[in-house]
Measured scan of single mutants.
Amino acid sequence: MPSETPQAEVGPTGCPHRSGPHSAKGSLEKGSPEDKEAKEPLWIRPDAPSRCTWQLGRPASESPHHHTAPAKSPKILPDILKKIGDTPMVRINKIGKKFGLKCELLAKCEFFNAGGSVKDRISLRMIEDAERDGTLKPGDTIIEPTSGNTGIGLALAAAVRGYRCIIVMPEKMSSEKVDVLRALGAEIVRTPTNARFDSPESHVGVAWRLKNEIPNSHILDQYRNASNPLAHYDTTADEILQQCDGKLDMLVASVGTGGTITGIARKLKEKCPGCRIIGVDPEGSILAEPEELNQTEQTTYEVEGIGYDFIPTVLDRTVVDKWFKSNDEEAFTFARMLIAQEGLLCGGSAGSTVAVAVKAAQELQEGQRCVVILPDSVRNYMTKFLSDRWMLQKGFLKEEDLTEKKPWWWHLRVQELGLSAPLTVLPTITCGHTIEILREKGFDQAPVVDEAGVILGMVTLGNMLSSLLAGKVQPSDQVGKVIYKQFKQIRLTDTLGRLSHILEMDHFALVV
């Protein structure tokens, strides 16, 4: 994948999101292997301009796509893939009243899908469409860049269908997702969380590099694949309309690839034109409109599966009536509230959605109805927002919020430890010299600072030695090549209790 991002070429006709291997024109390309080798690009942008032909009021008969309808489940399912879809609609009884809503608040519980998330729908649909058009064949390999849930859905379907599955996901995604993927037989590649989507090191860039190296491999490409919004247009939206008897006044959905909100909203605009569509985008993402909503100094966020630093091709923002931004604290607070007060075992993005819903639905009156999409299960986040310690460490809970008995030293300040200034190293000294210094002084790690004293990161003896043994660096290389740029900081005025929580999850903390 090139470091400079080429513009994806656009073909003359058809839909841009065809499933299957992508040609340089962004659509299915038939021909000899030699032709494909000559024409197939190194990668295709996940934010390529959409060429979708959908228009409100256009006859369904003019759609270029294969459409399906929700099917009634048999008493005995032939395999677990038949437990994807037909998820329950559940009334939220307490939270709406707590925040003064007059309307009825309903939750579409997508964590009841077989793999635990709304992404099971698009995973199965992308595979079925690729099999139907002859792209996927027995023994082929599926590769997908994902925040985890699409990966789980694909790995689940691949396990049943017999495909090899490789999932490329950023490091910030939970260990629970990784464990589930491994249990399903998927191979996992992790990428830096802070890598831009168009960087060769991003999950998108690495996935395309693997595709170019592995024979008979395919990126189904949830960011561009029409099967993504079509899955929701054909099934999720129809289920909502049936469950609500066609009567709903507002739908609120958090947005990642945009397939969920695009597919549902398009069908609702056709069948229930008075329904307002509300999009939820986390602070630090750029999906919301108008652009002024996205202006923030924050560039990272903890909530998973929603928000991006690019506009995915499948996201149709014209069908969203209003956007709201959400933050991590309210997302996790509301997710825990949904679990504790409503018994809905949902993930953090569901918290984002409901946090926005109780604001947006203030305009609705008694007798009206708001539906929220709860995308995934708490299963993926047992060591994250479900953990009091994690919430404390991230600053989303305060010590006084917890009532468990603490040891005698818990409320003492870090400054009472009488710490001395640490050994520091410059980023320009060599790895070999740094190892000598650390061994001589008896230290395992040291902060790396520039000549102005600005902290650049941390270097550890173990990481340097393993990097040297693996051949990633040489003793003569500058130590700046092996620094940890993500590390926890703590102030002298913070409590030892807070430091204790940090050290339970990290090997060190830097006192500043």
Rank of each mutant, 00 (worst) to 15 (best):
S3E: 12
S3A: 11
S3I: 02
E4D: 14
P6M: 11
G11H: 09
P12Y: 09
T13W: 01
G14V: 09
R18K: 15
G20N: 09
S23L: 01
K25N: 15
G26R: 10
G26K: 10
S27R: 08
S27D: 12
P33I: 03
K36N: 15
A38D: 11
E40Q: 13
L42Q: 11
R45I: 09
R45W: 08
D47G: 06
T53N: 06
P59N: 10
S61E: 12
H66Q: 11
H66L: 09
P70M: 11
S73A: 15
S73N: 13
S73K: 10
D79Y: 09
L81K: 05
I84S: 08
I84V: 14
D86Y: 11
I92D: 04
G96Q: 04
L101K: 03
L101T: 04
L105R: 03
A107H: 05
C109F: 05
C109V: 11
G115W: 07
V118I: 06
K119F: 00
D120V: 01
M126N: 00
D129Q: 14
E131N: 08
R132Q: 11
R132N: 11
G134T: 06
L136H: 01
K137N: 12
D140E: 10
T141K: 09
E144A: 01
G148H: 00
G151V: 00
G151L: 00
A159N: 13
R164M: 01
M169Y: 03
E176Q: 14
V178F: 14
L184G: 05
P192F: 06
N194G: 02
F197P: 09
V204Q: 08
V206F: 08
W208I: 12
N212M: 09
N212R: 14
N212K: 13
I214N: 05
P215K: 08
P215G: 06
Y223T: 04
N225I: 05
A226F: 01
A226S: 11
L230T: 08
Y233V: 00
T236V: 01
D238L: 01
I240F: 04
I240K: 00
L241Y: 12
Q243R: 09
D245E: 12
G246H: 05
L248Y: 02
L248A: 06
L251Q: 03
V255Y: 03
V255C: 12
G256I: 00
G258M: 00
G263Y: 00
I264R: 05
K269N: 07
C272I: 07
G274F: 12
